[in-house]
């Protein structure tokens, strides 16, 4: 177990800068998720921590010790790759025991550890199989088993679930989380799936174009996104965002007045802003802003409506079922406490 600290990390491939000075402290035992769109540099950052990429500038410390110059093999980390990277010529047992074997541990200690990991991951019946004889989900578990037998300082995961089908992904998500609660090993987990990030993380670092946009606990990011990018990245379906202007304690937009609570009182009158409101905070009401239903998508427990206010489509999430159909008029009454305002130019939260 250990803390991890990135300070002012920069990375360039040739002349192309990819990471622009990332600083991030991960506490001992924390489950940190790096999330962001494809190509934002999450894997690169993780691979630098693993010692698989050089560090262009800045430093990385594990447990207070700078590891910039340390080989992967000396960093005492374990990594689960997206492709699993199981050794094809070794059985599940040999795959899982490989790192211990390299450390020249005693044979019965290796046996013991592998058996223990196999039990946690339900891999007992497959120990003598080769990776090619396993399903995707089983391979994924072997890859995790290979990591946990080592009892490393830090676990690294690079999109470990993206090759699984939706149902298995959800199941493995809770398995990994349960595993973390049990082992309490510091974990850095990379994903581009914000649902994975929200459900698994202690804290999330939202990355975009080589920078961290916001760092915080999942619900913090959800409730108080620091900027437009985070607002639209976190949450599914995504937040409704449209242009407006502050006028008399509300925002005029799409030909209507949208209520908002201003943290910074005054000085905003007339300013151009982006108004953001999550679909579930747009519940239909008996009066308010008029909208016309375009599409109704019942999902059982809740119903998703696509509505039009003026010419703009918005998404509305209502609890329970809706009897409304396309063409019906409804009223929206957004809760001012759940409205988000962003500066139109900088995209920063107001």
């Amino acid at each position: 177990m250990a803390s991890v600290s990135f300070s002012q990390i920069q990375k360039s491939f040739g002349k192309t800068p990819v990471l622009h000075g990332i600083s991030l402290d991960i506490a001992d035992g924390e489950f940190m998720v790096l999330v962001g769109p494809s190509g934002c540099g999450k894997s690169t950052l993780l691979r630098m921590l693993a010692g698989l990429e050089d560090i262009t500038a800045g430093s990385i410390a594990i447990d207070g010790r700078v590891v910039n110059e340390l080989d992967s093999k000396d960093r005492d980390i374990a990594m689960v790759f997206q492709s699993y990277a199981l050794y094809p010529h070794m059985t599940v047992r040999e795959n899982m025991g490989f790192s211990l074997r390299l450390r020249e541990e005693k044979r019965n200690l290796i046996e013991e550890r592998v058996a223990a990991a196999a039990k946690i991951l339900n891999l007992g019946p497959y120990l003598d199989r080769y990776p090619r004889e396993l399903s995707g989900g089983q391979r994924q578990r072997v890859a995790m088993g290979r990591a946990i037998v080592r009892d490393p300082k830090v676990f690294l995961f690079d999109e470990p679930l993206s090759n699984l089908d939706a149902k298995l992904r959800v199941a493995m998500r809770s398995e990994i989380k349960a595993l973390h609660q049990r082992l309490k090993t510091t974990t850095v987990y990379v994903t581009h799936d914000q649902v994975e990030a929200m459900t698994m993380a202690d804290r999330i670092a939202v990355m975009n174009e080589g920078r961290i946009e916001q760092l915080g606990r999942p619900l913090e990011l959800y409730d108080r996104p620091a900027n437009l990018f985070v607002a639209q990245f976190i949450g599914s379906p995504a937040m409704n965002v449209f242009d407006g202007a502050v006028k008399g304690g509300a925002v005029e937009a799409l030909g209507a007045r949208w209520p908002a609570s201003f943290s910074k009182s005054g000085g905003l009158e007339g300013q151009r802003v982006k108004y953001g409101v999550r679909p579930e905070h747009l519940e239909p009401a008996s009066s308010g802003i008029a909208a016309e239903i375009v599409v109704v998508e019942p999902m059982g427990a809740e119903t998703e409506l696509v509505v039009k206010v003026g010419d703009t489509s918005l998404i509305v999430m209502t609890r329970g079922r809706s009897t409304a159909g396309p063409g019906d008029r409804i009223f929206l009454a957004p809760d001012p406490a759940h409205a988000h305002l962003f500066d139109a130019a900088s995209g920063l939260r107001i």
Partner: peptide
């Protein structure tokens, strides 16, 4: 696959291993 070498590095393998 390159990842096999990376996995081996992380697992603690030397060049010869």
């Amino acid at each position: 696959p390159k990842e096999l070498y990376e996995a081996a590095s992380v697992d603690g393998a030397s060049a010869w291993q």
